[in-house]
Design a protein around this nucleic acid. Structure first.
Lengths: 212, 212
DNA sequence: GCAATCCATACTGTGCACTTTATAAAGTCT
DNA sequence: AGACTTTATAAAGTGCACAGTATGGATTGC
């Protein structure tokens, strides 16, 4: 199903292509090329790029064009530092309004993740898993900020997910998180969230230092 | 001095008009009207509106148009709750890279605020004062988030500033903050920042409940 | 070797046509 | 007759083709 405006269609398309790594960090985004490929005019493309720029996924210089933003390790660290502060807050806010249906959905996602072998499919499930838990806070400032931070970092998380045991660790933590939520133990859930993020950051740092 | 692109010009113009209250919360923003008034075509206006929408200053429904976002008390509370967490972090980050020149500038701003009687001029100085202290963190995620949160709330802070003693309190707190920074007492500065925000929020809550 | 100029590329802005939405009037059903 | 649905119309947002313009690199001349 296609969104009701073209610029929204372009935005969503580019967004997921960047997040999934189809378009790599550093790649140039030429308006006319994208317009031709997506079969729209340049105007909606331009508007989508500006939107992505404000979100931090893309770097946009006036009269010079757009490139997919590539993050330094320091920037990734900043994102995780922020998430470690904000996600526990968000969790507390969202969980109180979370009903059983959404928790069930999260549980099903978790079960699928346990058996999923394909990395990119696992990552997509992971994204949906977290989104589901935070769904009640969707329109809020905090919800938007966290979602945007998480998306910005996804291409870099991918690096650390290459190792299967990293995914296994994540799965275990997800199970634990669901258990805490079921028991209503918010403090433990908050702590786990922070630890989960810290562990992910460490994994990214390691995979980074062995590469570049 | 006019920015090098038209859409940036429109963005800055509308932004300051909204923040200063020239355009009131709830007001409709019609593309063609704005375009005629600012003597540009509708395209740059549209792009500016989308930018402001993503920033949270404006509400934009596809095919229906834009209105200046008006915040409920709950939303103002959320903004302050976030600022109370993030600004101390930002302070710590920015201050370590703050050189004497910027601190001097902040001090001069503070001195002007002490004698300034006009409310809107005082508010503008206040904005510049805080911006100066956080300037080193300008390009960072955290810096952008805090700046955007602060701007969103400005029209509502204005309510509480009507009372002169509220401004006097703020002036005193600014002096104290500068003293802490000079002494390098970051812990005290952080605490003060939080208290300052809490006090402002309380003032807003009071002025709100007596009005609506 | 350096600087000014030229040129290709791609972004920005305009005017217009198209589409959607909301309002109001006319028609239909019970 | 009243309420609901349908249809016309006006207002405003969206998208497109094309013209205008800024940027970076190549070329020319000194």
């Amino acid at each position: 199903m296609r969104p009701k405006t073209n610029y929204e269609f372009v935005r969503q398309t580019l967004r997921s292509e960047i997040i999934e790594g189809v378009i790599e960090p550093g790649a140039r985004l030429v308006q006319t090329e994208l317009a031709k490929r997506l079969d729209v005019s340049t105007t909606p493309v331009r508007e989508a790029l500006q939107d992505l720029a404000r979100e931090g996924l893309v770097l946009l210089d006036p009269h010079r064009g757009a490139v997919v933003r590539s993050l330094s390790l320091d920037e990734v660290r900043e994102i995780y530092e922020l998430r470690m502060v904000l996600e526990p807050m968000l969790l507390r806010k969202a969980v109180s309004e979370l009903d059983g249906k959404e928790l069930d959905h999260a549980r099903r996602l978790y079960e699928r993740m346990e058996t999923e072998q394909d990395v990119s499919r696992w990552a997509e499930l992971n994204r949906e898993f977290h989104h589901t838990l935070f769904a009640p806070a969707d329109g809020t400032r905090l919800g938007d900020i966290v979602a945007s931070l998480r998306d910005s970092a996804i291409p870099y998380v991918a690096l650390s997910l290459a190792k299967p045991d990293q995914r296994a660790d994540s799965n275990a933590e997800h199970a634990e998180l669901l258990a805490h939520l079921r028991d209503g133990d918010l403090d433990a859930a908050e702590r786990l969230t922070r630890d989960h993020l810290a562990a992910t950051l460490r994994a990214i740092e390691e995979s980074r230092s062995t590469l570049s």
